[in-house]
Design a protein around this nucleic acid. Structure first.
Length: 456
RNA sequence: GAGGUUGUAGCUCAGCUGGUUAGAGCGCCGGAUUGUGGUUCCGGAGGUCGCGGGUUCGAACCCCGUCUUCCUCCCCA
């Protein structure tokens, strides 16, 4: 071994026990999605650059992994653009393909492309990896799995209500003890910008107030100034920083604040509906909080905005989502409203590891190991294994007649539930020894009894 | 993309102002126990000190570059 092999930064390997835990997470999410009527689709891991570029804001483009053209296509490089200093155009000429950055934009592309094969409202879920050329940090990877559920072709707020239930169901089933679902509405943010007289600075304003809990009131004011927001506008916005009380009380205060803004009041109305319906349905573990400062960077959201954070753990949001009225419009099909959510599987995996929340059978391994006592005994065990496997029992025969100590140690490491000891004597007497590795108890069975025991 | 930080055995980490042959615990392998694991006891193997260059009589330690880790921004799952 000349040099130790390595994997790229921000990626990870998963051992069998780790994959078992991740499978448990994926299966939990899938089963809930399914009960709400979502069906799975898949899209390619990479898309045409033009499909992705420009869909995630200025910062987003920087974080998209580009795939270098190969072979003769390299000759298509736009050297002129390079000389002119137009790096984006030069990059586009070098890389016609890019790894997907999220699952929502490819889904919008998918819907437009297959519009005549789908019936609307179209509900799909999608669990696949995405890639971001971000600087890795705790809970931040360059390759990670998103678990998305979206519905397009309906502007019904009942779907927002469903998604709130889905967040609650999934995270409750995963045994996460406490988590808060923050909810806001982009129309309320538009209303704020409108009321302050800076409607054209909507993005700057929302990005700034989104940082309230991080940089504080003074920090937000400072950032607003830097972005060129007027002092009168800042003075108008400032009272929002100190809004408190229950969701109902906050909504009431916002209603007053936005009384002059039609779009703002529309946002309040939508949010009220979702919160009322949610209250009527009830929640298991989720706490719902209306947070005016919740903005979510994605600039395609137009209505509800969601974010979920786990209590008492140092981790960014584990889920996000929202409504986007015209995402498919970017690909030439307008008039379709969509709403969706995303579970960050890798962050959930990290949280569950940190809080040690896996059920004991999440990493269950082999059910039965046949100890190997030699050629003829092993041959008998192989026949018995085949019978058991046909009944769906997972089992295997130890590959060589090594010392019992070694065979048992192997069984122990593999977390095997039972070890069968079938040597010369057992075969002669027709008494097959089966040891329970947890209790240490050992029982002799006839072949028929053994088959019955494991297939019962 | 900006600034900082980390890297020593499979894992977690010691290693003094630069000074012989780089250590420990756990794990691994073997034995005590030739048909019984998870406990105990005894023994053993295992390291180009992330990589490349430089300074020095001498570098795990100092300098430069690079990769990686974690952190703060940016942004986000």
């Amino acid at each position: 071994m000349a040099q130790k092999p390595a994997i790229p930064k921000g990626t990870r390997d998963f051992l069998p026990s780790e994959v078992a835990r991740r499978t448990y997470i994926f299966d939990t999410i899938k089963s809930v999605f399914k009960t709400y009527g979502f069906a799975p689709i898949e899209t390619p891991s990479f898309e045409l650059s033009t499909t992705l570029m420009g869909k995630y804001g200025e910062e987003g483009d920087r974080l998209i992994f580009r795939i270098l053209n190969s072979g003769d296509k390299m000759k298509k490089a736009d050297v002129e653009a390079l000389n002119e200093g137009n790096l984006p155009r030069f990059a586009n000429s070098l890389a016609e393909k890019a790894l997907r950055y999220d699952l929502t934009v490819p889904f919008a592309r998918f819907v437009v492309q297959h519009q005549n094969e789908l019936s609307f409202p179209f509900k799909r879920y999608q669990i696949q990896p995405v890639w971001r050329a971000d600087r890795p940090q705790h809970g931040r990877y360059q390759e990670f799995y998103q678990c998305d559920a979206d519905v397009v072709g309906s502007d019904s707020l009942l779907y927002e209500v469903d998604f709130v239930q889905i967040f609650d169901q999934v995270l409750t089933r995963l045994q996460i003890p406490g988590f808060t679902m923050k909810i806001n509405n982009r129309k309320i943010l538009s209303g704020i910008a409108e009321v302050s007289g800076e409607a054209d600075k909507l993005i700057d304003i929302t990005v700034a107030i989104d940082k309230l809990d991080k940089i504080g009131e003074d920090g937000v004011v400072e950032e607003l100034r830097q972005k060129g927001v007027s002092e009168t506008a800042i003075a108008t916005i400032s009272p929002l920083f100190t809004i408190t009380g229950s969701n109902e009380e906050r909504l009431a205060q916002m209603k007053t604040f936005l009384s002059a803004s039609e779009i703002g009041l529309k946002g309040i109305e939508e949010l009220e509906f979702v919160l009322e319906q949610t209250k009527a349905l009830g929640l298991e573990r989720a706490e719902v909080e209306f947070d005016v400062t919740l903005a979510r960077g994605l600039n395609y959201y137009t209505g509800a905005i969601f974010e979920v954070k786990v209590h008492d753990v140092k981790m960014g949001s584990i889920c996000g989502g929202g409504r986007y009225d015209d995402l498919t419009g970017l690909f030439g099909l307008s008039g379709l409203s969509g709403v969706g959510i995303s579970f960050g599987a890798d962050r959930i995996y990290d949280v569950l590891n940190e809080l040690d929340l896996y059920p004991s059978d999440a990493d269950a391994s082999l059910t039965l190991l046949f100890a190997n006592f030699g050629q003829s005994e092993a041959a008998y065990c192989m026949r018995l294994s085949k019978l058991l496997r046909q009944k769906g029992v997972d089992c295997e025969v130890y590959p060589s007649d090594a010392k019992m100590q070694k065979q048992f140690k192997y069984a122990d490491n593999r977390k095997v539930k039972f070890v069968a000891l079938i040597g010369e004597n057992e075969l002669k007497e027709g008494k097959l020894q089966v040891k329970n590795m947890e209790t240490g108890e050992q029982i002799a069975y006839t072949e028929a009894e053994l088959l019955a025991f494991f297939t019962a």
